[in-house]
């Protein structure tokens, strides 16, 4: 007998949504420490070509961005509300752009220092990327032990079996699934040839073993599905973006003729809002240069709206509240 399964039947039989269902009906992500739709922005000029950032200025910018994002009295207060001393905090960088278009090490050091001051022991902080080699190329020192914070790549340390979230089925980095109890995304502000924007949510493609499988249809809904997995949905508490230099075209690789000195550090407890803000910034620069908007170029970052529908944050660029730090 012919049998045509409905989508729902198919999902039931294949179990593809098995992991989604338990929390599908939950309230939207957020709580007293999540400031939906709000992005804190602090000014900081990029260093001269080849130069390093002044650590004191870097610290001030990171702290101001966090304060602006949270309205807390200080960065220490804000971070102490977000992270417990018992947390193991993972900071996921996006270093694909190499030295020219990755988070500046001085900014990451500043964040680590502020976390320590907020009560998280340095040895419970792990700065990580997909591979150690990428970290080194971006100017970070790989460190797996010692009294200081850790800094190393996932380097194939994934869960042995895949887990499912929406349309994706992936083995997650054990750092994310098991080791860390809290996560911070630390990306850059750049155009992405397929996704449209690579800033906050897209950065988390770096924690699954098979991101190459999920670049169809402008990475939608896949980016949102990765971030809706409980490993991220329940652990991601803060997003920072190094916007000292941003890129409005030709990403994700660094392209010198498409970068521009945006001169800001951005922070948000709403990872979707951080992307919506980045989209706004990139489109503004594209307009200034006479380039079509991302939507006109047929690569609007649709995953942002999908993530908003999942309740992960605010996805409408026009609804983002930018607060100067």
């Amino acid at each position: 007998m012919p049998r045509t399964l409905t989508r729902r039947e198919l999902a039931r039989i294949t179990g593809l949504s098995a992991l989604v269902l338990p929390w599908a009906g939950r309230a939207a992500r957020g709580g007293q420490n999540t400031f939906r739709g709000r992005v804190g922005v602090a000014k900081l000029a990029p260093p001269a070509a080849g130069g390093a950032l002044d650590p004191a200025l870097a610290r001030t910018a990171v702290a101001r961005a966090i304060v602006a994002a949270t309205g807390a009295a200080s960065a220490r207060v804000a971070l102490a509300a977000l992270f417990k001393p018992s947390d193991t905090v993972g900071i996921k960088l996006n270093c694909l752009g190499g030295r020219h278009l990755s988070p500046h090490p001085e900014l990451v050091e500043a964040l680590v220092q502020l976390l320590v001051e907020a009560g998280v022991a340095a040895e419970r902080i792990v700065v990580f990327e997909r591979s150690s080699r990428e970290l080194q190329r971006a100017g970070f020192v790989v460190r797996r032990d010692g009294a200081s914070y850790r800094c190393f790549g996932v380097d194939n340390d994934y869960d042995p079996t895949p887990s499912t979230s929406g349309a994706i089925g992936s083995c997650f980095a054990r750092l994310v699934s098991t080791t860390c109890s809290a996560l911070i995304g630390f990306g850059v502000v750049k155009d992405h040839d397929l996704a449209g924007v690579s800033a906050s949510l897209k950065n988390w493609y770096g924690v699954i073993h098979n991101p190459n499988k999920y670049h169809d249809t402008n990475c939608d809904p896949y980016v949102a599905d990765v971030c809706n997995h409980p490993f991220l949905r329940d652990k991601l508490r803060l997003t920072l973006l190094d916007g000292l230099v941003a890129q409005c075209h030709g990403g994700p690789a660094f392209r010198s003729d498409a970068t521009f000195p945006l001169g800001v550090v951005a922070a948000s407890t709403d990872p979707v809002a951080a992307d919506a803000w980045a989209w706004r910034v990139i489109d503004a620069e594209r307009s200034r240069r006479g380039l079509p908007t991302l939507a006109a170029a047929k690569r609007a970052p649709r995953f942002i709206a999908t993530a908003a529908r999942y309740g992960l944050g605010v996805g409408d660029p026009a609804a983002i509240q930018e607060v100067a730090g």
């Binding site: 040839d193 670049h215 030709g250 994700p252 690789a253 392209r255």
Partner: peptide, 25 residues
């Protein structure tokens, strides 16, 4: 052009930006 390529090996026809990989990885 502009550093992008199109793979013509399988029907997916991946269009791949610089430093990126096709769906097969």
């Amino acid at each position: 052009g502009e550093g992008r390529v199109e793979c013509q090996l399988c029907p997916r026809g991946c269009q791949v930006a610089d430093r990126e990989r096709g769906a097969c990885g």
